[in-house]
Computed example of a mutant assay.
Amino acid sequence: MHGSIMKQQLSELFHRRYACHAFEPGRAVAGADLEFILEAGRLSPSSFGLEHWKFLVVQSPELKQALQAACFQQQQVGSAGAVIVILAKLAELQPDSSYVRKLMEREYPAEQRAQALDNYRSFHAATDVRAWSVSQCHIAAANMMLAATAVGLDSCAIGGFLPDQVKQILDIDPAQYEVALILPVGHCAEKPHEKRRLPLAELVEYR
């Protein structure tokens, strides 16, 4: 019975989540709710367990307006109660970095660690690390948007932005991080429309 209730609640959250394009300006996000959303991101899964993300929480009206300009003037950025800028780690993902070694020690028993590091080194050399790190951050973003819905807030995943401008506004070192996604969060000022998605029959193929 408990499992059925959880399944129903989760389904309701998926159906209720809405990409808000206009937030109630000046309405703040409660600190406890913001922390809950950030915790959902922190607890997200990641490739090799490397937790590719860093979260910058922007609440300053001036910075939000500057970010809005760097996001092609999408008004939800400037009007949101808080804007979470999700950064994808770059330099720390180097195979011999202290960061990778620390997390590998946490993830793998001593007898497996050397092989895991060798596997990671080969993977890193053959991979577009920037794109890979950004894609991992999108996993965290999805969980954060669902968490926002669970506490009665709305969000909107912003992938349309000028990365160099965002980095300049927030003083982000481009060697250390890439901007993965910008996530405004707050109280929506518009009425959500009915969820519109393609049916499973058009999306799923069983083999």
Rank of each mutant, 00 (worst) to 15 (best):
M1N: 12
G3L: 14
Q9R: 14
L13M: 10
R27F: 00
A28R: 13
V29S: 12
D33G: 06
L34I: 07
A40G: 10
G41L: 12
G41V: 13
R42A: 09
R42M: 10
S46F: 00
E51M: 11
E62I: 12
Q65Y: 09
L67D: 10
Q75C: 11
Q76A: 10
G78S: 11
A80Y: 10
G81T: 02
G81E: 02
A82H: 08
I86Q: 00
A88R: 03
D96Y: 02
D96W: 01
S98H: 12
Y99W: 11
R101I: 08
Y108F: 15
Y108A: 09
P109F: 03
R113G: 06
A114F: 00
N119R: 10
A125S: 13
A126N: 01
A126L: 03
W132Y: 11
S133E: 03
V134F: 02
S135D: 04
C137T: 03
A140T: 04
A148Q: 07
V151I: 08
C156W: 00
P163T: 11
P163S: 09
D164G: 02
Q165G: 02
K167I: 06
Q168S: 11
P174L: 08
Q176A: 09
I182M: 08
P184A: 08
P184F: 11
V185F: 05
K191S: 12
P192T: 13
P192Q: 12
E194A: 13
L198E: 14
R207A: 14
